[in-house]
């Protein structure tokens, strides 16, 4: 999504007022913490500038584009209207896309968490001397581009793929199972692709899990299931929550896997934005969809922060929520 915006940003210069507002917004945040010294500001400058040009400006440009009116044949009328928003929100097709995006996000998040949790728990608790190696193995898939991994999944899940050929050779199924070119395939591949992220996020959030607490629970009469349910699970919840946020956001914006494995039959916001911008040349609609995706992210992040704060209060017992 942001890639599209950046590429387009080169051709149309953004409105002058936009970047400055974003910049002053960044500047206003600084005095909140301890006052940064001259060196700190100097060191922050390159990153801040890079963010300004690659993130803030294109973002403002996308919002601006969403307020334009699309004309036939890819032409755009510069104006300030919510007409495109109304047009998109009135169209049932886009609601279906949004629904499918959320459905994919929820399914992928649930299955990724279910599969990653035991791995993360094992890696966090093991005292084996192979621990570093196992950690490296768990995140090794990140070394391979997700495009390559998606192609790998196509070879496995397709009608002529490994699974279907094996099943048919064993005469277990009559025809090929529909594992690719649909939601099932996209979920399977996405889960595998996001698992390393989930594992890393979980482990980093498992700091409260101390082996002594499990021993204490056992000494009080808790069997292994009770220890898991009453001690391990509550203490690892912050890590699970962080992983959930990460995976959900990643899969909401995921493009490669839905496009390749979906086989043109799974419509999500990311693929739809691409189609509108590149195929239909309807930039205002693409921009509106991008803004809608951003709004979704915003909602998700607010929900996450609330949940995280509620969890934090459970540990500290402080009533007032602080940032």
């Amino acid at each position: 999504m942001s890639g599209t915006a950046t590429a387009a940003g080169d051709t149309v210069p953004g409105p002058k007022g936009g970047p400055r507002t974003a910049a002053s917004g960044d500047g206003a945040r600084a005095p909140r913490g301890p006052r940064p010294g001259r060196t700190a500001l100097f060191l922050l400058a390159p990153g801040a500038l890079a963010l300004l040009f690659t993130y803030a400006m294109p973002l403002v440009w996308v919002v601006r584009m969403a307020l334009n009116e699309p004309l036939d044949g890819g032409a755009i009328r510069q104006t300030l209207t919510f007409g495109t928003f109304t047009q998109v929100l009135r169209d049932g097709h886009y609601w279906k896309v949004i629904g499918q995006t959320l459905q994919l996000g929820v399914l992928v998040t649930v299955f990724t968490l279910l599969l990653a949790y035991p791995v993360a728990l094992f890696l966090a608790r093991t005292t084996s001397r192979w621990r570093s190696l196992l950690m490296a193995l768990a995140v090794a898939p990140l070394l391979i581009s997700s495009v390559a991994r998606t192609f790998g999944w196509m070879a496995i899940l397709g009608n002529q793929g490994l699974i279907n050929k094996t099943l048919q050779a064993l005469a277990l199924t009559d025809g090929p199972l529909p594992l690719a070119n649909n939601m099932t395939g996209v979920v399977i591949a996405s889960v595998e692709i996001y698992m390393p992220f989930a594992i890393l996020a979980m482990i980093s959030g498992f700091g409260r899990l101390e082996p002594e607490l499990e021993r204490a629970a056992a000494s009080l009469g808790a069997n292994r299931l009770a220890v898991l349910r009453r001690v391990v699970l509550p203490l690892t919840l912050p890590g699970v929550l962080t992983a959930a946020l990460l995976v959900f956001v990643l899969s909401l914006s995921g493009y490669v896997t839905p496009r390749l494995i979906g086989g043109g039959r799974v419509f999500v916001l990311a693929t739809e934005i691409y189609d509108e911008a590149i195929t239909s040349l309807n930039w205002p609609v693409a921009a509106v969809l991008s803004v809608l995706l951003l709004v979704l992210f915003g909602i998700v992040i607010v929900l996450y922060q609330r949940a995280q704060r509620a969890l934090e209060r459970r540990f500290t017992g402080e009533k007032g929520a602080s940032r």
């Binding site: 409260r208 002594e212 021993r215 204490a216 000494s219 009469g221 203490l235």
Partner: peptide, 22 residues
């Protein structure tokens, strides 16, 4: 006999109190 059926009351050096419970 495993720990959870031994009926021993143990006080740990680190206390090992459950931080998520009051």
């Amino acid at each position: 006999i495993p720990v959870h059926r031994r009926d021993m009351g143990m006080v740990f050096q680190s206390y090992a109190l459950f931080p998520h419970l009051d």
